[in-house]
Design a protein around this nucleic acid. Structure first.
Lengths: 331, 331
DNA sequence: CTGAAAGCGCTTACAG
DNA sequence: CTGAAAGCGCTTACAG
């Protein structure tokens, strides 16, 4: 195909000046006589001239584009995150270029590699299956930050404290059989979370039963399957889910099987997506601190791009638990 | 900032051949002696050479990038649409570059204009506030298709038939006071839908009460407000919503106000997003025919890009109504 | 099988 | 205040 469109030379010829003059009129880097400036503006409009992006990029490699790579955006938490990330980047006159790599692992690598050919000034890796090290290798000279897990300045989220808070809460309400549907996006921290659970039971002079942990994949289907196993077979009285999506799957299973929430089964989520508030009963869930994480991620990436020193190196964020109506006491 | 990175000249020098040879080895357009080819591969890996995207684009303007412009992706229907669109584009070796313009109108125009500087081969306009004509003007020589509403080959969705089907269904169950929370994303069709409602009432020897129509903005908040007005003041027994999100808002209002669905209030949505199935009670909703629309949109855009003649010019799609549990008969 | 040269559409020292 | 020229990093006729 061919993108016709006028070039700067066409404009210059029509006005009767040199291309340099047109270029300077556009950039404002040089004082141009008002008469010529006006004429240039007129001709630009007449020919519908638009400077070719790639030709500009060849001279000045900064594109102010940030590649954002994510598997898919159907997950409500991801969608919210992307919207907020776009807003944050706009504040610094950067523009996100979102790539959906799809569910396949190899695709994600391809996308990261393609981005690193000068198209973007930096990339934000949101792929759980790609480590910070891999991401940086795939991107070569282009700065990357892998969300939350970045090696230079990771965000440490208070998963451990959160899990203990949740367990304490459920325990105090009389729950003794507590199931957990884990989340694949927080793989790195999964180990810690399980440790936190072990600790908790240890303090209660009990032992964590590994059969109470169901490996979820962040989809509501896996929440559904988790509920089927944990409530249907393991007879839990409460289920903690690694994200809200899976908690919704638990709700769905409960509805299909005539199990009442929170009457017969208590549920706790993670993310605090809008639906968690509107679902019935409103879901008790942990509020993922989007704003703080996004502002940190963007700050970090811009520092790398602009080769500035980092002011902060590590961030600790607590995760508040939002009490709503999906948890009840055991009578 | 400066993106260092090796150039093709660095590679050529290191191997001891000309840049042309390296270029041909990469493209495969020329037979290269195996020994040299091997050496080139080795050096490329050693220097971590990646062809500069913008320099390639300067010679061959086709980037195989498709700009997709959308206000935001937090709406579940939009997120689903974007995921499926990415999959469809990948089938043809095109890659979506998603831009979130945010809620502001002007931003959307800026983004469209910026895309049209050669960065992408075509754009898909998903902004309800920008008409096909405006979009094409903003994009200049770059092909655009405005989803569904494209002038060349629009998709006509059976909104009229759907609305009549829904009204028939509710009417047959005894509903006489039926509210409607309209959707701002389907502005164009809103008129038709209201006509369909008028027709319906006319056939029933009644008159449509305009007070039964609440102008929604696709957010669950507006569903909430709609329910407050329509049920709280206008005493409807059923509410039809322009999208599922707003139906969820109605659910939320009902929960807060102790109104049971479908016992006291029946609700119908539109989109069939995953949550509509998992919500309690599962929502009776219309299934937006994503796949057909996306495949049509992509086919149309690729035809424009590759300057092929269109095989189809207009598509009529029926919208199935999925009966679930959010509607009950009036006793 | 390989190389030297022109050119894609801009910008920016350099010269006036 | 303005122009001629070099160059960004590639690709592709053209020549051997």
């Amino acid at each position: 195909m061919k993108k016709k469109g006028a070039t700067i030379i066409d404009v210059a010829r029509e006005v009767g000046v040199s291309p340099s003059t047109v270029s300077h009129a556009l950039s404002g880097n040089r004082v141009i006589s008002p008469a010529i400036k006006d004429k240039i503006q007129t001709v630009i409009r007449k020919l519908d001239y638009r400077p070719a992006f790639y030709a500009q990029a060849l001279k000045n490699p900064a594109t102010r584009l940030i590649g954002v790579v994510v598997n898919e955006c159907r997950n409500a938490g991801t969608a919210l995150f992307l919207d907020a990330l776009a807003d944050e980047l706009h504040k610094f006159s950067y523009h996100p270029m979102i790539s959906l790599s799809g569910r396949g692992h190899e695709m994600g690598e391809d996308v990261l590699r393609q981005l690193s050919t000068g198209l973007v000034d930096g990339v934000i890796n949101l792929l759980p299956q790609i480590s910070p090290e891999e991401a940086q290798k795939l991107c070569g000279a282009i700065p990357v930050v892998t969300n939350i897990r970045d090696t230079m300045a990771p965000v440490s989220l208070g998963f451990v404290k959160l899990m203990q808070k949740i367990l304490d809460y459920l325990w105090s309400l009389g729950h003794r059989q507590i199931g957990y549907v884990s989340s694949s996006t927080r793989l790195e921290q999964e180990g810690e979370v399980v440790e936190a659970m072990k600790d908790f039971y240890h303090r209660k002079k009990q032992k964590l039963d590994e059969a109470m942990i169901f490996p979820g994949d962040d989809s509501s289907d896996s929440g559904y399957a988790g509920a089927d196993l944990l409530y249907g077979q393991r007879k839990v009285t409460a289920i903690i889910c690694g994200n809200d999506q899976m908690a919704f799957g638990v709700y769905q299973w409960a509805y299909k099987n005539g199990v009442s929430i929170p009457g017969q089964l208590s549920v706790v989520g993670f993310d605090n997506v809008p639906q968690s508030q509107s679902i019935i009963p409103p879901l008790t869930t942990a509020a993922f601190p989007y704003e703080a994480i996004i502002s940190h991620t963007v700050k970090l990436l811009l520092a790398k791009i602009e080769k500035r020193a980092l002011t902060t190196h590590e961030v600790h964020l607590d995760i508040p638990l939002i009490l709503r109506d999906s948890v009840a006491a055991i009578e």
